[in-house]
């Protein structure tokens, strides 16, 4: 049976690994290459590396760093951050990266998705959306590069991205980011009802039980940051990943 994927999501800032809280206050947590080596040894299902400043500062992806990741990573690797053109994506795929995650550039240019999907297949394009709840709890599409919410309907946005060729959706609950307070299950349910393609839920995961609940709510894969890099009430940095047997037992949900 197909096991739901459990994916460490690593955030990059200027070559260092960081962890944010509700998309703010990036805290340095270590050397990314070292982290990737540890995750490799732990046989993780997949890795996601997101550069949180590339789009914000208009930088190119850090190719040198990405190449180092790809060489160390014997599981699928998804990279996101600062990709604006097909040529940039070409360079990244050529290094041994399987998927690119797109967000900022697609607000202006959905055709970027189509160009990459036609060349590398839909499975290689992840459309990433950040969702923030407003004062009344209503879900709003958030732009991580500028740090504001928009009135664009996020479901319509996702559907047009899927139509353009995206093969997978990453949905990140901004208010849950780094809080270790459990996933936004309502949001996951809503997204799952809307989508026929794999859905990766990110934000708030603090335990194996949270992962399980996110999957029951409809996530095809669950990504987490803080859960895999922090340990204990003082948020000491410790890189962990559950053993396969634990995951298998925990995720034995007949939803294949």
């Amino acid at each position: 049976m197909l096991k739901n994927r459990v994916i460490p999501a690593l955030l990059l800032k200027n070559g260092g690994l960081v962890k944010t809280l509700k998309f703010k206050d990036p805290k340095y947590v270590g050397d990314p290459i070292n982290a990737i080596r540890i995750f490799n040894d732990k046989e993780v299902d997949e890795l996601m590396v997101l550069d949180i400043v590339a789009s914000k500062e208009g930088n190119e992806p850090d190719y040198k760093m990405i190449e180092l990741f790809a060489g160390e990573c014997f599981m699928p690797l998804c990279y996101g951050g600062g990709i604006k053109t097909l040529e940039q994506a070409d360079r990244i795929f050529n290094m041994g990266v399987e998927k690119v995650s797109l967000q900022t550039a697609t607000f202006e240019n959905m055709e970027l998705i189509t160009g990459i999907a036609e060349k590398y297949g839909s499975q290689a394009v992840v459309i990433s959306v950040d969702i923030k709840r407003n004062f009344f709890g209503k879900t709003k599409l958030y732009r991580s590069a500028t740090g504001d919410t928009t009135n664009e309907n996020w479901k319509e946005f996702l559907n047009s991205a899927i139509e353009a060729g995206a093969g997978e959706v990453l949905i990140n609950a901004v208010d849950k980011d780094g809080t270790l307070t459990g996933p936004d299950l309502e949001l996951i349910k809503e997204a799952d009802e809307e989508l026929d393609i794999p859905l990766i839920a990110l934000g708030g995961i603090s335990s194996m039980e949270d992962i399980r609940e996110a999957i029951i709510a409809g996530a095809s894969a669950v990504a987490a940051g803080a859960f895999f890099v922090f340990h204990g009430p003082h948020r000491a940095v410790l890189i962990t990943y559950p053993k396969y047997e634990e995951l298998e037992q925990m995720l034995d949900i007949s939803n294949e």
């Binding site: 049976m1 197909l2 096991k3 739901n4 299902d45 093969g167 997978e168 393609i197 095809s220 294949e256």
Partner: peptide
């Protein structure tokens, strides 16, 4: 049997 089968088949399988 599989009303919710997602395509592509993506992930780890035996």
């Amino acid at each position: 049997d599989q009303p919710k089968l997602k395509v592509p088949h993506m992930g780890w399988n035996e």
